[in-house]
Design a protein around this nucleic acid. Structure first.
Lengths: 222, 222, 222, 222
DNA sequence: GATGAATGAGGGTTCATTCAT
DNA sequence: AATGAATGAACCCTCATTCAT
């Protein structure tokens, strides 16, 4: 009786490996996300996961491997969330909208994971940055495809030939960057919901896209 | 007199404090920018600066203080560069264009400083992030003002009633975020010049602004 | 019945204890011999033995106990091999020759065991070294006896008065040390067979013995 | 006054680097020699040297480097001691005798150093063993040269052509091995002085050498 | 008879920081 | 103005060893 006298409250011992691994990854996401790769200590992660340090090493081998596992899991989760948010049967602009919303919702709900992907992973050497770059490119490719579809839809025809590949990539790059910035803004100022941020961005994106497609480019000289 | 009494050949000794400090800050920018706050060691910085470690501590007190000094100096330099790039007598769109160009030129010319501001500072605890947030807000405010002016200019009148302050700020926020992302893109892929990156973004921004002013907003329901 | 009810394919399970123990000792000999006492890990030994670590502890109690068991088994094997190599009915010099040969053959055939006895055991604390010292003394005593017999045989009589016990022991000590050194040499350079090594040493020993018996000692003063 | 009240008793602080390095090497020799490479801890060495661990790393970089430095210093010391012990103007047999004596005296006076060279260094990987092998080969070459000179001296002529190179090498190898064994014997049993051990070995060696030179080899068949 | 799960303790290494000169 | 000498604290990682099943 007294403290800890409940049924299975307190810290559970003897769990199957798969479960423990997820707990460790959860703790690692939180620690890496808030402190950064170098500042996060394995002691801290182990303690937060409720296990001893050797167990973390037994399952995840090293700090680098742990970080890589974190990046992989969270990158996959984000991409899946965006993918799951779009309904392929809808028109392209609605898909783009849904994808953006899913992106904002997911990053808002998992701020530590987002910090790991956005801030930490790119900061600590090639191997980690490569993982995030892969994810980012997957998203950029997805957005690029949606833009292409939207372009065809908007023109009612398939003749939108002057959309140079680099323009589209630049657009997508700027779009993702703007999304990242807005995600931060939305997370910091509580009064802007994920939905509003997505709407603002969509507004922005749609116009840029339309202009690009109509050949109406802003040029310095004019 | 005595040993070393020649001209100033070899490594210069006995320099005025202000000069030494700038050398230390230069070394710190490079080291922090390339390695990150935690991975950068005071030994490395001191060696790169050509001084002994105690001197670094004598002048800059601690690693945190040194990092803060770096952030302040480089944030000021970036803001000044953007401000110096605009000519207040020009029309607002030309000012926005010039500011963007100055931003890209400066970040391209000082990649380590940009890395410190964009990647490292926000990654390592509140005090540092606050410094960068202040700079970012200064730029956002600047851009917000330019956008407001451009809006009024485009309408030839001051009656643009549906441009809510929050919309403008959101637009500026997205614009700055997109600029940061494109700056990274431009720094990584050598084939996109600062000018092209600025043009792409301006193109994007101008369209978003125009749409906003015409009240042509994309809405989910449609 | 049930899973694993087939013949004895795959890794054999449920073996009698004595067999399992020998497998563990085999693995330990190899691991200790190649890596040394401290560098060898119980994990490695257990894996090489094809059993789980707790089983090793169940049977052999601790790393120290395991090492001791290894030393005992291999010391016994070496002494037995040398003893088995001599034919008591032969003349003493032939016995000495046969013993040397057996020594070289055995160490060449069990290099890991020899490494444990010669290099590792004496390196890690008194308790282990004592085991090996005991074995060494057994061999030295054996050699001492053979030398004594050979001396008597060479003189055709038992009157070899100037062969002090200490001289004989010193000779045996040097002989065994030389044998150990040559065993290492033979193991390292593949081109010297056990037989040649033994012949070289026998050659050496016989002359020393002869000199000793003839009272022809080399003395510093001359 | 009282404890520590003396002039410069107690632990001296602020010493020049070269002195501190030697103190560290002294402590390392003792620790490595008694405990072995793996069992010796840098903490222990630092404490024995009277400094903090970081200083050991500052000066000697790593445990491996420290061990290498120890091996080099002690190998050099041993070779120098042997070399210094011989008087080149004496006859060859006297030189051989003097060298052996110097060897025994030095190893008896520096048992930890001898343990490092003889037992530890060969046990822990190629890089270390190579250092000792180099020293050993230097000694073997020295002995080989002396043997050659002694052979010519003993025959009064230079015609000792049937001394095959391998025989000489084997002889030297066995000689060094026997010397090592006798050194251990002498160290363990206090009643055998270094001089006696050297005499026993010299006796042994001289006879083997003589036999070899006279072509009187012991052969199994006879 | 046999094992997956788990840990206390300790080792090598590095780093920010400070004296004494 | 400037530095060689020195360290407390912390971090990553490994290992011998033990439960509970």
């Amino acid at each position: 009786m007294g403290a800890g006298g409940g049924a299975d409250s307190g810290r559970a011992r003897r769990m199957p490996r798969a479960v423990r691994e997820q707990q460790m990854l959860d703790a690692a996401v939180r620690t890496f996300g808030r402190l950064g790769y170098r500042a996060a200590s394995m002691d801290e992660i182990a303690e937060l996961a409720g296990v001893s340090k050797p167990l973390v090493y037994l399952y995840l081998h090293s700090k680098e491997d742990l970080f890589t596992a974190v990046i992989r899991r969270e990158a996959r989760a984000l991409v899946d969330a965006v993918r799951a948010g779009v309904e392929p049967s809808l028109p392209a602009d609605a898909q783009l909208w849904a994808g953006l919303r899913a992106f904002f919702v997911h990053t808002a709900e998992h701020p530590d994971a987002w910090a790991v992907l956005h801030r930490q992973a790119r900061t600590h050497g090639e191997p980690f940055a490569a993982e995030v770059t892969a994810m980012r490119e997957e998203i950029v490719a997805f957005v690029t495809a949606l833009i292409g579809a939207a372009a065809r839809q908007a023109c009612h025809t398939a003749d939108a030939p002057d959309l140079a590949a680099r323009d589209v990539t630049g657009l997508a790059q700027a779009l993702v960057g703007a999304a990242e910035s807005l995600a931060g803004w939305a997370n910091e100022t509580g009064d802007v919901s994920a939905k509003e941020a997505a709407a603002t961005l969509m507004n922005f994106a749609w116009a840029g896209l339309g202009n690009l497609m109509r050949g109406e480019r802003w040029t310095p000289g004019r």
